[in-house]
């Protein structure tokens, strides 16, 4: 089941946002709504998949001396293609994600996976790793935006990215009690800090249990 482990570790154990703390710039900025989160997640998965695929295909040809510049060029080209495609097919999403689509280029996740995994492993492993990391990123961003949108606007909503007028669902639970701080930048930091604190709490509890079992 080694292939499945490669895929699975990107989801939880080495989740790029919650564990590795990479790519925080974009994850804090675009988590104001679920639609943005899913859109950005899709874009990151696309770029990660293609960049891991191409780099692992070319890993024997790229000279070791200049591999970082070559990776950056490949990733920049891919991101520009994705940006232009999003501008054409998902204009509403492109508007709301704004400058953070080009900033995927400097998202540490993509370059990090290219350097540490795709340049040393086969094509299938790299694709699985990209899928795992991309889904882990999407999952993390969804969680953050779930809380931010729920507490910040009192409801959840999801639009079809390809056709902004088509609403997939739109709930509004308690808009009178919404704390609009959470849709603002301060709320992003506080939400992420609390989620990381929760994860650390789980880790500490597990470590304490292991210590107690050891003592016995």
């Amino acid at each position: 089941m080694k292939k499945f482990d490669v895929f699975k570790k990107g989801l939880f154990v080495e989740n790029p946002i919650f564990v590795l703390l990479l790519g925080l710039c974009s994850s804090l900025a675009i988590t104001t709504s679920l639609t943005n989160a899913i859109g950005m997640g899709m874009a990151v998965i696309c770029v990660l998949l293609m960049s891991n695929f191409i780099i692992s295909l070319l890993r024997k040809i790229i000279p070791n001396e200049i591999r970082i510049p070559v990776f950056i060029v490949i990733i920049a080209t891919l991101v520009k293609c994705v940006q232009m495609l999003m501008n054409a097919y998902t204009p509403a999403l492109y508007e709301s994600l704004g400058v953070f689509i080009p900033l995927i280029v400097v998202n540490c996740i993509i370059l990090g996976r290219a350097e540490s995994f795709a340049s040393k492993n086969g094509v299938v492993d790299s694709i699985l790793d990209a899928l795992g990391m991309g889904l882990g990123y999407t999952f993390a961003v969804l969680i953050i935006s779930f809380f931010r949108e729920l507490i910040g606007t009192g409801g959840l909503s999801l639009y079809n990215p390809f056709d902004a007028s088509q609403i997939i669902f739109q709930f509004s639970f308690f808009s009178d009690y919404a704390i609009s701080l959470f849709t603002q930048p301060a709320g992003a930091f506080i939400t992420l800090g609390t989620i990381l604190a929760f994860i650390q709490f789980l880790k500490v509890r597990k470590a304490n249990k292991a210590k107690k079992a050891e003592v016995k």
Binding site: L20, L21, L22, I68, I72, C108, L111, G112, E115, S116
Partner: peptide, 10 residues
Amino acid sequence: SECVGCNNIA
């Protein structure tokens, strides 16, 4: 080696 702050592999 003091720069162990971030995980930026680039």
